[in-house]
Simulated assay, not measured.
Amino acid sequence: MVLAPKAELTRKSMESSIPYVVLGLLYAYLLYLSWTPETIRLIFASKYLLPELPGIAKMFSSEMTLASAWIHLLVVDLFAARQVFLDGLENQIETRHSVSLCLLFCPVGILTHVITKAMTKSSRSS
Rank of each mutant, 00 (worst) to 15 (best):
L30C: 14
R41M: 13
V84G: 00
T36V: 03
F105S: 03
L31I: 06
A69T: 10
Y29M: 13
P107Q: 12
I18M: 08
G24S: 06
S68Q: 12
V76L: 15
S125D: 06
G109T: 05
A4E: 15
E52F: 01
G24L: 00
Y27E: 06
P5V: 06
K121P: 01
L103Y: 03
V75H: 07
V2A: 01
T120E: 06
Y48N: 11
L89G: 01
K6S: 11
K12Y: 09
A81V: 04
W35Y: 15
L53T: 15
L103G: 02
L86H: 04
L101D: 03
Y29F: 15
T112F: 00
L89I: 09
V22E: 05
S62Q: 14
K58L: 11
F85P: 09
R96V: 08
I115W: 04
M1Q: 05
E52I: 09
A81N: 08
T120Y: 07
L3K: 06
R82A: 03
Y20C: 02
L89K: 13
G109A: 07
C102Y: 03
D77K: 09
L30K: 11
R96Q: 14
G109D: 05
R124A: 11
Y32S: 12
T10V: 11
C102T: 02
S34Q: 12
H113L: 02
V99S: 01
C106W: 07
